[in-house]
């Protein structure tokens, strides 16, 4: 190899190194640019909601009913109350059913049987069904059809319950699976029955994870608009639901109604209601995080 060749090779190596460095810089530019853009979009989203909504946030917004004529006396009481009721109703339905299903699949089901695999695959698929389809189910099966209870609070709770049930089952299963098998062996070896083992050792050990998962699933239910629109939640009612069989609305529905209003002051109220909705969600997420940190069982 001549000296010239060696020099050329070295030069080529340096050039190659430079190209590599250039590519890395370019990529870094793209990467930080993309992240920055996403971050900016997020800031704009929060900012727009805050700028438009905060001026309307007053005590009156919580205590007044929505008005169709005068934005200055309008509030979201019926929507806030409706959302709280809906959440409780959904929880009452989804917690026992979700945990029972999760217990069956994790503790009892023989995975080699085709029907148990069918249940599992089915739940995975249900979790991916668009929420608007649950609205159709609620309309045709709960509001009308077999149950036929009308567009009332109970119908809303059941529809949202069916919607988040697969998610609750999936998170509950994960928590139950995290309990080591040695705990089950220990309990069974002491003469406990299957159910005693499950109810007194497995379930309490999985409690923190299940509670956290349920709260996060419920916060998903609260933000849903489409299914409630489809089953026919009331728009801007000037009353709170007085029972399970009463008409109702919820914050997302109220927000939607306000965005459709030609009066821009009402559109701003949509932002105010969004802030209330976000605060509720943040509160629920906060509770979930605190519970997880305090009670999570480490093995």
């Amino acid at each position: 190899m001549t000296g010239a060749q060696i020099a050329a090779n070295a030069l080529e190596g340096i050039r190659h190194g430079e190209r590599k460095r250039l590519a890395a810089q370019l990529f870094n530019g793209f990467m930080y640019g993309a992240i920055g853009l996403a971050f900016l979009a997020l800031v704009a989203l929060i900012g727009q909601t805050a700028v438009k909504g905060l001026p309307g946030l007053s005590l009156q917004f919580f205590t007044n009913f929505p008005s169709r004529i005068n934005p200055s006396t309008s509030g979201a009481q019926s929507a806030i109350v409706g959302t709280v009721y809906l959440t409780l109703l959904t929880a009452v339905f989804v917690i026992p059913v979700g945990i029972a299903t999760a217990l069956y699949l994790e503790e009892y089901a023989d995975k080699t049987r085709w029907w148990n695999r069918l249940i599992e695959v089915n739940i995975q698929n249900l979790a991916a069904v668009p929420s608007v389809v649950y609205g159709i189910l609620g309309l045709a099966f709960i509001v009308r059809g077999p149950l036929g209870i009308g567009p009332v609070l109970l119908a809303g709770g059941l529809t949202l319950g069916l919607l988040v049930l697969p998610v609750v089952i999936i998170v509950a299963r994960e928590s139950i699976r995290a309990v080591p098998p040695s705990i089950r062996d220990g309990a069974l070896a002491l003469g406990a029955t299957k159910w005693q083992t499950v109810s007194r050792q497995v379930l309490p050990s999985a409690r923190a994870g299940i509670v956290t998962g349920v709260i996060l699933s419920l916060s998903r239910a609260i933000g849903e608009t489409a299914p409630l629109l489809v089953i026919g939640a009331a728009s801007s009612p000037r009353f709170n639901p007085s029972g399970l069989n009463d008409a109702f609305t919820a914050l997302p529905i109220q927000i939607f109604t306000w965005t459709q209003d030609p009066n821009p002051q009402f559109v701003d109220q949509a932002a105010t209601a969004s802030i209330v909705l976000l605060l509720i969600l943040l509160g629920m997420n906060g509770i979930a995080i605190v519970l997880r940190n305090r009670y999570e069982q480490r093995w």
């Binding site: 070896a189 003469g191 406990a192 050990s205």
Partner: peptide
């Protein structure tokens, strides 16, 4: 279940309940 009540068992890894 009655069998396990009369015949106790201790496992390889200590497995106390939490």
């Amino acid at each position: 279940v009655q069998v396990r009540k009369r015949i106790g068992m201790v496992f390889q890894k200590p497995n106390p309940f939490p």
